[in-house]
Design a protein around this nucleic acid. Structure first.
Lengths: 198, 198
DNA sequence: CGGTTCCTTGAGGATGATCAACGAGGGTGG
DNA sequence: CCACCCTCGTTGATCATCCTCAAGGAACCG
């Protein structure tokens, strides 16, 4: 949970509903609000000229997203879209910055959040540059599992489609499918009835 | 300039010399100190199993580096190496966190710094996923130019070797060379006597 | 000069992308 | 219950391109 919802509302935040597939903000928009998810899920992604999509992150209930540009007067580097019907709290940049200045605990947690994001993005960079598909997929799965606090030994079903995994790893669907098949043969993943376990 | 040097020393920081090519910390070390460069330059990079290197960032006089893991009790995702003879100020993690809590202005500037790093890394991710070499190199050059506050119209000599550009972009030297030649033909860069201008 | 580092070129091979087609499952409406 | 549609998964063939390996040339420095 990023910022206590009561505090947000006290400072004038409003909750807004977004339907599945509705855009919350576009790449290159200027950043005017702090967003925090009450219900639902949001994906941030950017697409390049040939329409290929890259998923920069997914966010769920309790998470905030799109904060960095607020601090540096920058435009959004990616688009944010609701991947389910969602409720999102918005509060203006100024109020958000004020809250951070007023509440040391919140300040600290935002700092931690940003630090974690950098850490994760460093890893992502590293994994993507290593162009081997298996390596990229492995890193993605490991990260997903860890994010959900599941120990290495337990098997976990991965709730993403092959296309989604492709968008996370910067590969193509077919490559993901073929690589997963190979990984299945080597027992690096488990595929049952098209469902993927790791 | 990140944190005022006097403040750092007041809180017990020490300056340390590193010779060119000396390692400051290794990937997977735990993060115990805040580092800020007084003189010289530092590169952060990670390498994968086949020895290929990826440069996560370069830092110069006045810059700090390796802060994110301090906030989240994480190990370093990359190795830091002095690329020239350098002088670096070190201060313990605890003292650093105390300073941040004590000086709101410093707190703010660190927050901005982290936000900027995320922003940059998002762009890097995006550019690397777009696997076309020309695109990656272009993004790298644009970023370098912008970092140095040079307007789009001015030509700037790029002080990196082809190998270094390769390490920044996750490509191979030969690919960088061939791509730069092509870009030269289309006047997207200028090559004079092996020197690169953009 | 002699050595080192960096740049350059060519040939060949590996591999991920692309294109095209089909299969499988799930939901909906008649 | 069946027919249809839509999304997702899968497979094969072909292509484009970046990597790899090998060699040589250019610049720079003591």
């Amino acid at each position: 949970m990023q910022i206590d919802v009561d505090i947000l509302f006290t400072w004038g935040a409003v909750a807004k509903k977004y339907l599945k597939d509705e855009i919350i903000f576009y790449e290159d928009d200027s950043a005017l609000f702090y967003y925090q998810i009450v219900e639902g899920a949001v994906k941030m992604f950017c697409s390049n000229e040939d329409g290929k999509e890259f998923t920069q992150g997914v966010f769920e209930k309790g998470c905030s997203f799109g904060e960095p540009p607020l601090f540096i007067d920058e435009i959004y580097p990616c688009t944010a879209i609701a991947t389910q019907d969602s409720v999102v709290i918005k509060i203006s940049k100024d109020k958000f910055l004020t809250i951070i200045a007023e509440y040391p605990e919140i300040n600290k947690s935002i700092m931690k959040l940003l630090a974690l994001r950098i850490f994760k993005k460093s890893l992502t960079n590293k994994n993507i540059v290593n162009q081997k598909p298996e390596y990229r997929i492995h890193a993605f799965l490991r990260d997903y599992k860890q994010k959900n606090g599941v120990s290495d030994s337990e098997k976990l079903q991965i709730p993403y489609t092959r296309q989604e995994i492709a968008d996370f790893t910067g590969l193509r669907v077919e490559t993901v499918i073929r690589t997963l098949s190979l990984m299945n043969k080597c027992n690096k993943v488990e595929i049952n009835n098209h469902k993927l376990f790791y």
